[in-house]
């Protein structure tokens, strides 16, 4: 707790202090840093971060859920191997993996060459250094965080409930919405939080794949600390980011998790 709370307290304190020339700070209370946040430039960046975070979370869910479902439907002996495949990227450094996307996305990169060779495009697409490239990088980077919690809830899911729903007249779609979805909601929410939080705060991916054009909150904070040397303002940005993330997480644990816990555990206790 000390290692977690102490730095947080320092950052909180810094956010109310003034900047000195050359990276120092002046010990004088001010709200200026927070006032500065409400400027259009910063609001735009914050909004863009949230939007990209939301998009990559949604995309991860749309890719990750069917993938987790597909894995669970495979014969038992294949399942662990497939889960391992999901985890394997973690064995390599995140930075290296993100750089690898440059090779894929750039004008003379693998994707453009492939698309050109099957004559879908006649001139290379500008994929790198766009918001799309950032989104792709985020989705790629955080997809396992979506798959794993969903997979673990599906693993505990009793598939005879699907048969029961079918037997009672529910087609595949209705069975999914009325039975499978509500009973795997905990995994979905956990996955979404695990993807959304680091996506919003990401700075490596937008830095590498977004070029200098599209700055996200993560980059902004990084710049304040390392380039502008404005630690108080960087701290204020950090506090705001923590605040933004805290809202959905607390809301989840206060209202939703308890409810889901009582209804999604398997029956049979008497």
């Amino acid at each position: 707790m000390v290692f977690f709370l102490l730095p947080l307290a320092i950052v909180l304190a810094y956010s109310f202090l003034q900047q000195d020339i050359g990276g120092g700070i002046i010990w004088q209370f001010t709200l200026e840093n927070y006032q500065r946040l409400s400027r259009g430039l910063y609001l735009g960046i914050i909004w863009r971060s949230l939007w990209l975070g939301f998009l990559s979370t949604a995309a991860c869910l749309l890719i990750g859920y069917p993938l987790a479902f597909w894995i669970i439907k495979q014969p038992k002996r294949w399942r662990n191997a497939l889960v391992l495949l999901v985890i394997i990227p973690f064995w390599t450094n995140f930075l290296v993996r993100t750089y690898a996307w440059i090779v894929l996305l750039r004008r003379e990169g693998v994707i453009n060459i492939l698309l050109a060779s099957v004559q879908i495009i006649d001139k290379p697409l500008d994929l790198l250094f766009t918001p799309l490239a950032i989104a792709i990088g985020l989705i790629y980077g955080y997809l396992p965080f979506m798959i794993l919690p969903i997979y673990s809830t599906l693993e505990r899911f009793d598939f005879s409930l699907v048969e029961a729903a079918h037997d009672l007249g529910a087609n595949d779609l209705k069975t999914f919405w009325r039975v499978v979805f509500p009973l795997t909601l905990r995994g979905i929410i956990a996955g979404c939080l695990l993807v959304f939080i680091p996506s919003v705060a990401a700075f490596i991916t937008p830095d590498i794949l977004g070029g200098a054009k599209t700055i996200m909150v993560g980059n902004l904070i990084q710049n304040q600390f390392l380039k502008s040397l404005n630690w108080p303002f960087g701290s204020a940005l950090s506090m705001m980011l923590i605040g933004m993330i805290l809202v959905p997480v607390t809301a989840y644990f206060w209202f939703v998790d308890d409810y889901l816990r009582t209804t999604s555990t398997k029956g049979g206790r008497s």
Binding site: A164, D167, T263, S264
Partner: peptide, 13 residues
Amino acid sequence: VNMVFQHYALFPH
């Protein structure tokens, strides 16, 4: 037709 399942398969939620 409808079925009564061996372990009931009641919807827990």
